[in-house]
Amino acid sequence: MEVKIEKKDGIDVISLNGRLDASNAPVFDEKMMDVLSQKPGKVIVSLKELEYVSSAGLRVFLAAAKEIKKIDGRIVFAEPAEHVFKVLKMSGLDTILKIYKSMDEAVSG
């Protein structure tokens, strides 16, 4: 999986490309915690190119949401493919994570 981290208009955008599973979730977790250690105001996780996610990846999403809450920041998720959204919904995370259908909504939301 590729993890691209960039800053756009003061927002940290983390773009995931490929498969997020138990074998690479620890690496993604480390990168996520690096971003959060800079105490960002807002982080967008772009899921557009994410092909697959299992509970190991969802654990990183949840841990990031818990962590950023402590520093009064916000993390939002953008553009999940339909099957990825289905997993988010089945896990119940859709009720506590902010998930937007488009990048524009994620930026302004």
């Binding site: 969802l58 654990r59 949840l62 896990s91 119940g92 506590i96």
Partner: peptide, 9 residues
């Protein structure tokens, strides 16, 4: 249904 502080994977 748990809130974010009590949610687990």
């Amino acid at each position: 249904e748990a809130d974010i502080d009590n949610r687990k994977i």
